[in-house]
Write a protein that binds this DNA or RNA. Structure first.
Lengths: 226, 226
DNA sequence: ACCTGAACACCGTTCAAGT
DNA sequence: ACCTGAACACCGTTCAAGT
């Protein structure tokens, strides 16, 4: 919310950046889950007293916001703006890129959808989606609605994926995620939930890229034609 | 994870139920957000020492799981099982019911998607969706995929809605939620994000039932035909 | 079996003080 | 302007003890 003064950075003692603090927080989040990313933990990692963090961020929520913006900022929207590429393919590429970037930090995904997602990077994403959807022939109102639908799908999918494998140590491989899913579903009692149990194998596939794409196609099918 | 022994409840001193503890936790969550729903706060509300909670639940995570299951259990799936009603309408009614029940407890929604959602109520929901989708003519594999897509949409939508209005005091009216959304979007700088800013009014509508239904229809359109 | 008092190892945040 | 030590008001959880 409150942006830090930008002019002078090097103070009397140490030189320390907002980015360093944010990076340390993200590292802790990846290594030890959400509980590990404490203000005190961050301070310890950058070698400073706990309250020194408050020189750079007004509170912990601001650090979380910085992480969210940092992660969203990792995808370069310009790459998906080439009008020579069909609009559906541009959106699909972007959706895959977002999933790849975010599933690398499962602990951060919870924080992402826990807050309003109203930072500049999030707005830029919405703006980009609306532009692309208008390219497809939708008017402004339809584009706004469809953009939000896509955001719900992409972040909803990623959030549910992240939730399934817990908030432990982050950055598991696709194979590990599938295995984790399989393990979870194999515990379903087949007598009470026959369909869910029978669908275990295919459900496990939902943490795979292919099934994410399948769902995205369905959403895009819905958007394409009424 | 570990179910409590069921046989004997009344002990030497007080009579106290898992449901009472869970209810107190939900009340605190609604009144004061996620931070207010502490083990110590729960204990104080039911008039007991903090550690007495651990007689009923192994840890705080188990209390959260109980809340999630309780909320999911509030929707009676049998109501949406009438085969005389078209399958799309059955799903739409269920999706609306879920949204209504869950948006009444915004603080709980974050907790819901923060964990695996693998309790009996969640499985029953998945089972019900798969049954309904098989009624529509999908085979088992397609039904499993489509069911997960619907779950992503419903819980993704509700989660993003809940995130927008913060984790403060819960149970705002639809009008309040729309107003909150409008307020947020009116702060968008029109020069850098023209489309997003221009879409403010329609985007505000996304916290309305009508726009939730719009998105659901698009998803169902995608599912209906490949 | 249920509950308590006391303690342990933590939190986020503030304040006065140092350079 | 930046950092520290110390403190405040909290956490979740455990343990030994009481009934």
């Amino acid at each position: 919310m409150a942006m830090q003064a930008r002019g002078s950075r090097p103070g009397p003692r140490r030189t320390l950046t907002e980015d360093e603090i944010m990076g340390a927080a993200l590292d802790l989040l990846d290594e030890g889950g959400v509980n590990a990313a404490s203000v005190r933990g961050i301070a310890a990692r950058v070698g400073v007293a706990p309250n020194a963090v408050y020189t750079y961020f007004p509170d912990k929520a601001a650090v979380v916001k910085a992480i969210v913006e940092h992660l969203l900022g990792q995808v370069d929207l310009a790459v998906f703006s080439d009008r020579k590429v069909p609009w559906r393919q541009r959106i699909e590429s972007l959706a895959l890129e977002l999933r790849e970037r975010l599933t690398a930090h499962p602990g951060a995904v919870n924080l992402m959808i826990g807050g309003p997602m109203d930072g500049p990077r999030a707005l830029a994403l919405n703006e980009h989606l609306m532009e692309t959807l208008q390219d497809s022939g939708l008017d402004a109102k339809e584009a706004a609605r469809a953009s939000y639908l896509l955001i719900v799908y992409v972040f909803g999918s990623i959030a549910l994926e992240a939730a399934e494998l817990g908030h432990g140590s982050g950055g598991p491989s696709e194979a590990q995620r599938v295995a984790s899913r399989m393990e979870g579903f194999s515990a379903i009692p087949a007598n009470t939930f026959p369909l869910s149990a029978g669908a275990s194998s295919v459900m496990a596939g939902y943490v795979s890229t292919g099934q994410y794409t399948w769902g995205l196609h369905k959403v895009l099918d819905g958007i394409s034609r009424t």
